[in-house]
């Protein structure tokens, strides 16, 4: 019980966010609640609408809440933003100010990708991008695909970035052609119709598109070599003022990784990758 009291005390003692001078946020201040959230022994998690990993995120949230002796509440946060992310951070600020304490399922962007008013937890999972071909293809790894052939990716994704970073180091005569798509279903469709020789796709997206059975859809996952590090670290973000809660969540995540809970949840939800992140 001491942990619950401690968590609640610090969780709700911090002043509310004041965002009027944030360069990267354009939400009207009138929309931001300026009172402390009073939720008793609840902790509210946001999970993105339509996320391919929504069920997994909710399971993680339930375990995190249990570890903190709090009752979980889940709120659906917005998706459907433009590729350039316009308005996304506005929505994150609104959600974390008005609706939830923690936003789950967030990629832990390296290189300072988040603004100062957000803080990130340690990752609870590393979820892979997969190199995939049709079963007719003779390739056993990405490296078997001849130069000049076309590799499809999910636009602005980690897999897309990793492929570009690798290809750009090669002489032009040894490069693949990279073609980024905005829709995972279309990406798989173009693999199956022969437009693409291979694709690099987020594992949960592949499972969604193929209804959990890539083989039945005539696809096969092949080795990523020569690419490496195709796992994305997944964690949570909070408002920076909630530093105590973040510390508690970090501890809880460490415990759930250590005792095998995260591994169990990943297996239950069909996720490969690494508990605790790559």
């Amino acid at each position: 019980m001491w942990l619950r009291t401690l968590a609640l005390g610090f969780l709700f003692a911090a002043p509310p966010a004041m965002a009027q001078l944030m360069d990267d946020v354009t939400v009207p201040n009138e929309w931001l609640q300026n009172w402390r959230r009073t939720e008793g022994d609840q902790i509210a998690f946001c999970v993105a609408h339509g996320s391919d990993t929504a069920a997994f995120e909710q399971a993680v949230g339930e375990e995190l809440a249990a570890a903190l002796l709090l009752k979980p509440v889940f709120v659906e946060s917005q998706s459907g933003f433009s590729i350039d992310g316009m308005g996304y951070l506005d929505a994150v600020l609104l959600s974390l100010t008005n609706e939830c304490d923690v936003m789950l399922g967030m990629a832990l962007v390296t290189g300072g990708g988040y603004p100062d008013w957000l803080t990130v937890t340690r990752p609870y999972a590393g979820v892979p991008f997969l190199v995939t071909t049709t079963q007719n293809a003779a390739y056993r790894s990405l490296g078997d695909v001849p130069p000049g052939r076309t590799i499809g990716t999910q636009i602005v994704s980690a897999g897309d970035t990793m492929l570009y970073a690798y290809v750009s180091q090669l002489p032009p005569s040894e490069q693949w052609r990279r073609l980024p798509y905005g829709d995972s279903g279309r990406l798989v469709e173009r693999l199956r119709d022969g437009t693409l020789d291979a694709i690099i796709i987020y594992e949960p997206a592949l499972m969604t598109v193929t209804e959990g059975d890539p083989a039945a859809a005539g696809l096969q996952v092949i080795a990523a070599e020569p690419l490496r590090d195709l796992e994305v670290p997944i964690g949570a973000v909070l408002l920076s003022r909630n530093i105590f809660l973040r510390t508690q969540l970090d501890s809880a995540i460490a415990s759930l990784v250590a005792d095998g809970t995260i591994a169990r949840l990943m297996a239950e939800h069909g996720l490969g990758g690494t508990p605790g992140g790559p």
């Binding site: 391919d52 990993t53 433009s82 390296t110 990708g113 602005v156 905005g182 995972s184």
Partner: peptide, 14 residues
């Protein structure tokens, strides 16, 4: 961007 989309798989980044 060095990393990835905010929520992987949804093609929203900047």
């Amino acid at each position: 961007r060095v990393g990835v989309e905010f929520t992987p798989g949804n093609s929203v980044a900047s």
